[in-house]
């Protein structure tokens, strides 16, 4: 026999969990919506103009030169746009939430600070993914159209029936245009942007303003591209190098991320294939950076008086 419910008993709620992916997802969703409302995707227009303009400008060059420059410029633009978006969008998150008082509303609820940070970062990472995907689609579309155009021109010159030479040229055009190896290259560009986003979030937990955060991260961006040089010099330094130099190089190597690690796309465009194992190791390092910077952000943010 079932006992009747006790009207005096407090209403039953699901137990509050210390860590909830659904709460993180909710914060990430809100962050993404906020960022989209800021019309951040307008930069895509600039990207489209850049690659279409570049394609039109390169018409007077040979198709090998045209495809080489188109790929270099498009992927370079993709890298700079995703990096800028990652830095600027993330740098605004915490100061904006403090200014709007949204931060206090969220943290007044039983939401752990780590979940708040993870949700914020998650929102930016989704935004970066959408941006990278849209730019990739645009890039592939322009490359595809140009490829078809050049092939049609070759066929027209061959009088409709391609001879052996024309067929070889068509094969060369296809080889110079899109290749599957570009996909891991684009994935690494995205990973670099994720790393920069996590780093920006970490800096913004102790920064006094968005401008300060942006300046610091841009400086780290430049130093990060030289970290590999410092590390190699440090590891190869012999007895004739002073301990001050060694100490400085060691600090640069230990503190700053190696951003050259994620600049593989230049060589991928040049025809290098990246092995799956190497791609996974490089990606793994990128993800490790994101995790560590998020943890570092949590250490500072959890002790911060709000």
């Amino acid at each position: 026999m079932n006992a009747a419910p006790d009207p005096a008993a407090p209403p039953s709620h699901p137990a509050h969990r210390g860590f909830s992916p659904s709460r993180i997802a909710a914060i990430a969703r809100n962050t993404l919506t906020e960022l989209i409302r800021l019309k951040v995707f307008y930069f895509l227009l600039l990207f489209a103009l850049l690659i279409i303009g570049n394609s039109a400008f390169m018409l007077r060059f040979s198709f090998q030169e045209e495809f080489q420059v188109l790929k270099d410029v498009s992927l370079g633009a993709m890298s700079i746009f995703t990096s800028l978006l990652a830095i600027v969008a993330t740098a605004m998150l915490l100061p904006k939430d403090v200014e709007d008082r949204t931060l206090y509303t969220i943290l007044a609820k039983p939401v752990p600070r780590f979940e708040y940070l993870a949700g914020k970062l998650g929102g930016v990472l989704v935004l970066l993914f959408i941006a990278t995907l849209l730019m990739s689609v645009l890039f592939v579309a322009v490359l595809f159209i140009r490829e078809k155009w050049v092939i049609a021109e070759i066929l027209r010159e061959a009088g409709g029936t391609p001879n052996e030479q024309a067929l070889e040229m068509i094969a060369n055009v296809k080889k110079s245009a899109f290749s599957g190896a570009l996909v891991p290259g684009i994935a690494i560009i995205y990973l670099k942007a994720c790393l920069l986003s996590a780093l920006t979030l970490f800096v913004s937990t102790f920064a006094s303003s968005s401008i300060f955060t942006i300046i610091v991260v841009v400086a780290v961006y430049f130093v990060g591209h030289l970290q590999a040089t410092a590390r190699e010099y440090w590891l190869a330094a012999g007895a004739n190098v002073s301990w001050i130099t060694k100490g400085f190089l060691a600090m640069v190597s230990l503190i700053f991320p190696d951003l050259q690690m994620f600049n593989l796309v230049d060589d991928i465009v040049a025809g290098n294939d990246i092995a799956l194992g190497l791609f996974l190791r490089t990606s793994g390092l990128g993800l490790l950076y994101v995790g560590v910077y998020l943890l570092a952000a949590h250490f500072i943010f959890s002790a911060k008086e709000l």
Binding site: E232, Q260, L264, N272, A275, L278, R281, T282, L285
Partner: peptide, 19 residues
């Protein structure tokens, strides 16, 4: 990460990246 990065950098060079 320094030894890992050093090893991955070497692998990159062996695969003709970052030359």
């Amino acid at each position: 990460r320094v030894p890992i990065e050093h090893a991955v950098s070497r692998e990159h060079r062996e695969a003709y990246f970052r030359g």
